[in-house]
Amino acid sequence: MTEGVFPALTRQGLTEAVEQAIRRAILEGRLAAGERLVEARISEELGVSRAPVREALARLAQRGLVVSLANRGTFVVRLGPEDVGELFTLRVLLEGHAASCLASAGQLTELAYLEQLAESAQEAARVDNAEAAAERDLEFSAHLVGLAGSRRLLRIWQELSDQLRLALPGLGRLGSPAPAEGLRRVLDALRTRDPEAARRAMADHLARWRALWLRAVSEGG
C-alpha cells in the first residue's frame, strides 16, 4: 500500500470518533441511564488519551445525553416525566410542521417508505413490542422531518430523538399496547394534501405516545 493514503488523525477527528463511540454505547443500552462515566476507564478501553474523552463528554453534555455534576462526576442522563413532557412538546412542533410542509408540497412519490415504516410500527404493536414500535415510530418521524428539506430542522430533531431514546428500555417493561395506528391517519392527510389535517393527525398521534412514554419513565424511576 502506498504511504500517505490516509490523512493523519487530528485532535478534532479523534474527539469526534470518541464522541460517536460513547453515543452509540448509550443509545444501544450498553451504558445505562444513571451510569457513571469514568474518563480513565473509557480512555483505556478506546486506546486514547483522556483529553479527547473529556472533550467528547463535554459535547455529549451539550447534546443532552450526559450530565456532569460537581464533585461527583459525569453520568448518563436519566429522563424524568418533565423531560419527556418537554421533548414531546418539541416533537409536536417539529413533526407537525414537517407533516404540514410535506402535505403542502404534495410529494406523494415520497410516501412509499413512510408507509413501510408505519406498517412495521403496527406489526410491532400487534405483538405487544412497544419498544420496537417506538423505534419504528422514531424512524418514521426522522424520515418525515428529513423530507421537509431543512438540515437545521433535522439536526434539532436528531438531538431530541437521541435524548428520548434514553427512555426506550422502559417502554419494553410496560407490557402496554403501542399507539401505532395514528401513523395511518398522518399518511391519509398527506395523501389528500391537507396541511392542517396532517398537523393535527401528527399531534394526536404524538399525544398517545406521550402518555405511554410518561408511564415508562414514571414507573421505571
Rank of each mutant, 00 (worst) to 15 (best):
M1G: 15
M1I: 14
M1N: 09
T2L: 14
E3H: 11
G4Q: 12
G4R: 15
F6C: 10
F6M: 14
L9A: 15
T10C: 08
A17V: 15
E19G: 07
A21L: 14
A25N: 07
I26C: 05
I26V: 15
L27T: 09
E28G: 05
L31T: 02
A32C: 04
G34H: 11
L37Q: 05
L37F: 04
L37Y: 04
V38S: 09
V38H: 14
V38G: 08
E39F: 08
A40S: 13
R41I: 03
I42N: 01
E45M: 05
V48F: 00
R50H: 03
R50P: 01
P52N: 07
P52E: 03
E55S: 08
E55M: 04
R59W: 00
L60F: 01
A61G: 03
G64W: 03
G64V: 09
L65I: 04
L69D: 01
R72D: 01
G73C: 06
T74A: 01
T74Q: 00
V77M: 04
P81T: 07
P81E: 08
E82H: 11
V84G: 00
L87C: 01
F88D: 00
L90K: 04
L90M: 04
L90P: 00
V92P: 00
V92E: 06
L93M: 07
E95N: 05
H97T: 12
A98C: 10
C101L: 14
C101S: 13
L102A: 12
G106M: 12
Q107D: 10
Q107A: 13
Q107I: 06
L108D: 05
E110G: 10
E110W: 06
A112E: 06
Y113L: 05
L114K: 05
A118V: 07
E119W: 01
E119C: 02
E123A: 07
V127I: 15
D128Y: 13
N129T: 09
E131T: 14
A132H: 09
A134P: 10
R136L: 04
R136D: 05
L138N: 02
L138C: 03
E139Y: 02
S141F: 02
L144E: 07
L144K: 09
A148E: 09
G149C: 13
R152N: 09
L154H: 08
R155H: 07
I156V: 13
W157Y: 15
W157Q: 02
Q158D: 11
Q158T: 12
S161I: 00
D162T: 04
L164N: 01
R165L: 12
P169F: 15
G170T: 13
L171D: 11
R173S: 14
R173Q: 15
L174I: 12
L174A: 11
P177R: 15
P179M: 14
E181Y: 08
E181K: 14
R193Y: 00
R193T: 06
D194M: 06
D194C: 09
P195G: 08
E196D: 11
M202D: 07
M202P: 01
A203M: 03
H205V: 03
A207M: 05
L212N: 03
L212W: 03
L214H: 03
L214M: 05
R215G: 01
E219F: 11
G221A: 12
